[in-house]
Design a protein around this nucleic acid. Structure first.
Length: 300
DNA sequence: GAGCCGTGGTG
DNA sequence: TCACCAAGGCT
């Protein structure tokens, strides 16, 4: 955003960055030694795990993962079964498979080095707009807008004056880009700072506006924090869902019978047998399990 | 592009 | 208590 007398008082970069320097949480992937030891691979793994899984649950699993597979080449030697087991209860286990696939793609197509270009990152399995730019920015220090649920919410409030962001769109990238400092390094800090603000202050439910470094220029606060239209899709009910059945099946395979179990012994008391069978079929279709000869097991 | 995909903490 | 929420991506 060009600095003019008109908009200078609405800029958010400087105060958000200043706030971040004193308020940032000490997270593993923000430590210099993390980058020295694991490089872009460490950032890539952390971003996969952070896709829809809270920070507190990621930290211990990330540590264990990188101890076991400190590079893409190490990861590529693992079997899908090992990967799914190591993923444990982080949720959305397809991400474990995708991370494994991405590692093999890095080895095969990029000589074992996580690529730096956003298009190359986007071409890897399981990497979308958010993760690609997060790696390019937080590992390589390049200048890109990193848009996630936090930055979308912060800008919806501060700039648009809405309590909730609208449906995801390419405009989100442009809006973030427009707020970013020109300098690469400052832009990287800004990206992290806006995410941090959304995660700890400008929260979805009950934001702590009294602690916000840009409360004096927030369009939503200035308008009296109105309840605005909420276009976010609600999550489908989990209790009784196919997802719950899939989770239950995979938990048995992970924790009790990774080498395999007779289908007739798998969750025999599940309330809906048809749903159980549906879960098995879809897990096999996703490559999260293998079935044959009346048995089911983690994929080899 | 709407629907789907886990798991657990929380107000 | 229970609906909401969490550093998304794929089909």
């Amino acid at each position: 955003m060009p600095e003019t007398p008109e908009n200078r008082d609405r800029e958010i970069a400087a105060p958000v960055i200043d706030w971040y320097r004193s308020a940032a949480r000490d997270l593993p992937w923000r430590r210099p030694e993390f980058h020295e030891r694991f490089g872009a691979w460490g950032v890539l793994v952390s971003e996969f795990m952070l896709q829809q899984t809270p920070v507190a649950r990621v930290i211990p699993r990330l540590d264990a993962w990188l101890e076991r597979w400190p590079s893409p080449a190490d990861m590529a030697t693992a079997s899908p079964a090992e990967v799914v087991q190591q993923w444990a209860n982080l949720g959305y286990p397809r991400r474990a498979l995708w991370l494994h696939r991405a590692a093999t793609e890095v080895v095969r197509e990029h000589d074992g080095t996580v690529p730096r270009d956003v298009p190359a990152l986007l071409a890897l399995t399981g990497i979308g707009d958010y993760t690609a730019r997060a790696v390019a920015v937080f590992s390589y220090g390049d200048r890109h807008p990193v848009v996630d649920t936090n930055t979308r919410r912060v800008l919806a409030r501060a700039v648009d004056g809405s309590a909730h962001p609208g449906p995801p769109s390419r405009r989100d990238l442009a809006l973030m880009e427009a707020q970013m400092p020109v300098d690469d390094s400052a832009a990287a800090v800004f990206n992290a700072a806006v995410m941090e603000l959304g995660a700890t202050v400008c929260t979805a439910r009950a934001p702590f506006c009294e602690e916000c470094p840009i409360a004096d220029r927030c369009a939503w606060l200035a308008a009296g924090s109105p309840a605005t239209v909420d276009t976010r899709r609600k999550q489908a009910a989990y209790e009784g869902s196919d997802r719950q059945a899939r989770g239950a099946v995979l938990r048995v395979l992970r924790e009790i019978a990774p080498a395999g179990i007779a289908l007739e012994d798998l969750l025999p008391d599940w309330p809906d047998p048809l749903q159980r069978d549906r879960a098995i079929d879809s897990l096999v279709a996703d490559g999260l399990a293998e079935a044959g000869n009346g048995e089911i097991a983690l994929p080899r």
